[in-house]
Design a protein around this nucleic acid. Structure first.
Lengths: 237, 237
DNA sequence: CGCATATTTGAATTCTTTCAATCAACGTGG
DNA sequence: CCACGTTGATTGAAAGAATTCAAATATGCG
């Protein structure tokens, strides 16, 4: 199944009609964007996006040039709902790899969710999950050491990729450069490099040519105190 | 005007009927909770809350005891919409001061927003603003130094308090202990203390007896590279 | 007044950044 | 197909930032 629907169906059973109408709309709008391209700039309105294929990031720049990546998006992610209402968004959305993205307006979403309650619910879960994700990221930056942050990050990405069938055994793509990984985990490029080597030396991962292999997933999770609960929200009974 | 309505009206003009019905509901449900009390625990469902009076925080605990405060709530804040759908939330909500809080269920909100489009819109903005806030916090933790983080934090709080008329000239309450401030800004208590002293030595703030005075607001904003844009979202024309 | 909590201090250690340079990988044009 | 240039990855050494531990001081509350 394609990542977008696989993603939405993790929490909610989507009716055939809702799925197909949503997916048909996405496919009709989706456009290709090549790697390293900015879809949104800080002083522009935000865009509600559905990432059909590829990797993208959200990044915020400080006046002195420092930058922090605040979100990573992988195929299937639906994000920035409603942000097209804002006059300026304060961040950039940038493609990491060649990508296929659909931009959907607030009103288009409103029309769909008005007709399909299950889709509406799925989008609500999507938002809850992204909030939980942001929280966990905050905990990483605030409390975890450099090594722990990277370990945690790799666990999270692998887990998310697996949920949309983009892992192969204990491996997955990792198209992020060390420079981006550094901005993501809030550390210098040099220190990131050294921490990566430490993870390798500990026998937890293998990483080369933009390909990640998790050698000891339990040890990696322990290292980053990774608990997938925040990625697997459950409905209250 | 009371903080709840003042807060909602920053972005949207609320009709008299929507305001009064919402506020009457809130008041009828609101309960007093004394300082240092936990409203929500990590393994419980979340609660959608309206903070009528008092200060509260959201905090996440790591298995080894480290804790990160991921949100600060002041009077007027409406937060955790829809989180009552989740079986467990992964964080605690704790009162800092004696507070008055209303817990509103997903369905209660749904009924109100179905009848009042302006209220629905106001809540959407509320969510967008909190997302922007979380992003800015992430940037702080990831990129700013200890001194910058505190400076930025004080700017943010003062700005938010002023929006709901809870500042007096260049002063405001600051009921957070240094221990909480440390968990908030992701640094050790000792280092927080030293950074605070540095801010005082620079002549930027005065802080004693849980009362904050901003002596040089421009310098403080510069120090923390604080740009209030993320707190003052504008509607797209 | 006295206990409990909160703040402040010093000194040593550990973590992280910075700067500057080298090495490796990758794509392009000749 | 290989030289070359560009970008990404790695290394060393030194400086700087932040944490830890342990103790002292101050503050608030009953």
């Amino acid at each position: 199944m394609n990542p977008v629907l696989a993603h939405l169906r993790r929490h909610v059973t989507l009716s055939e009609s809702a799925s197909s109408e949503f997916y048909t709309l996405i496919r009709s709008i989706a456009e290709h964007v090549s790697a390293g391209h900015e879809l949104t700039e800080p002083d522009e309105p935000g865009k509600s996006l559905v990432l059909v294929d590829g990797w993208m990031i959200r990044e915020v720049a400080l006046p002195d040039g420092r930058r922090q990546v605040t979100s990573l998006f992988i195929p299937g992610d639906i994000f920035d709902l409603n942000t097209d209402l804002m006059a300026e968004c304060g961040y950039s959305i940038r493609t990491i790899t060649d990508s296929t993205v659909a931009e959907i307006s607030h009103s288009q979403f409103a029309q769909l969710t008005a007709r399909y309650a299950d889709l509406s619910k799925a989008l609500t879960w999507e938002q809850l999950e992204q909030l939980a994700n942001q929280r966990e990221w905050l905990v990483s930056l605030g409390q975890r050491s450099a090594l722990e942050r990277i370990a945690h990050f790799f666990c999270e990405v692998f887990w998310r990729l697996r949920a949309v069938n983009l892992t192969q055994g204990d491996e997955c793509d990792m198209p992020l450069t060390q420079s981006v990984l550094a901005e993501l985990t809030g550390m210098s490029e040099v220190h990131l490099n050294r921490s990566l080597q430490q993870l390798r030396a500990l026998g937890l991962i293998e990483l080369r040519r933009h390909r990640l292999r998790i050698i000891d997933s339990q040890a990696l999770a322990d290292c980053g105190s990774f608990d997938p609960a925040y990625l697997e929200l459950h409905e209250r009974v």
